[in-house]
């Protein structure tokens, strides 16, 4: 379980998160939506401490990560996979090496074990034939699927997706969303920041609407998309649907 309580985050004088709390149960898929600059990504990054919250606490499986020293934080991050908008594959490593690096280095798997698992994952995301390519040879959609596989190679219990399709050409969005959806069907606990409303509606157990550093609504996708409670959410949905 991931439990964020009263998260406040300041960047200099700007307060980008104003008391945000969220609970994600195991097996749950939470989709965070909201306008740009509403703090969605920052909140996500506070969960695995890529950003240190100014105030508030994050608990993962009842361990308070916000109170940890950096050495322990590293251990928690093994449990929480993250996928970024801009993929951030390691450009100097082949696809296979991208997938095996962390499991070997961090989890201490043998190279053979790691490669076996990596090939399975590549198979799962439909990129078996790209194992020995460098990332620069892949399309955006392929890169993002590799990035998902790379995160999964660590066998995380939780996955965070930070706008996984926002940097993709439209025709590549679906292949990535399909992979995420099939992952959701395996019961993976996930928090997804996205602008893909159709996808949100389909995959989410819970939709969280953020604006101006706050959570305005947290409800089921059916309720949110058919009858949003706040005016801000209505306005947002009118603009994008």
């Amino acid at each position: 379980m991931i439990k964020a309580e009263h998260i406040i985050k300041n960047f200099g004088d700007t307060r980008v998160l104003k008391d945000v709390s969220l609970e994600v149960n195991n097996g749950e898929v939470v989709v965070i939506i909201g306008p740009s600059g509403s703090g969605k990504s920052t909140f996500l990054r506070c969960i695995n401490l890529l950003e240190q919250p100014t105030e508030g606490s994050v608990r993962i499986d009842d361990e308070e990560v916000t109170a940890m020293r950096s050495k322990q934080v590293v251990r928690v991050r093994e449990k929480v996979g993250m996928v970024f908008q801009h993929f951030y594959l390691f450009p100097h490593k082949t696809v296979l090496e991208n997938l095996t690096y962390a499991p070997v280095k961090v989890k201490g798997l043998s190279k053979e074990q790691a490669e076996e698992r990596a090939r399975k994952l590549l198979d799962q995301v439909g990129l078996t034939d790209k194992a020995d390519q460098y990332p620069s040879r892949l399309s955006g959609g392929q890169k993002q699927r590799v990035a998902i596989a790379r995160a999964l190679a660590m066998e995380p219990e939780y996955m965070l997706f930070d706008e996984p399709t926002s940097a993709l050409d439209p025709e590549m969005v679906k292949e990535v969303l399909d992979v995420i959806q099939s992952l959701a069907e395996t019961g993976m606990t996930m928090i997804i920041v996205t602008h893909e409303m159709g996808f949100a509606r389909m995959v989410a157990d819970k939709v969280v609407f953020m604006d101006d550093g706050q959570i305005l609504e947290s409800t089921s996708p059916e309720k949110f998309f058919s009858a949003p409670k706040t005016d801000r959410a209505k306005e947002f949905l009118e603009k994008i649907l």
Binding site: L50, V74, R77, M82, F84, A102, R150, M154
Partner: peptide, 13 residues
Amino acid sequence: KGQFEAASALGVR
């Protein structure tokens, strides 16, 4: 900067 973040997120020291 994303390279640092990607590596950190994977738990790399």
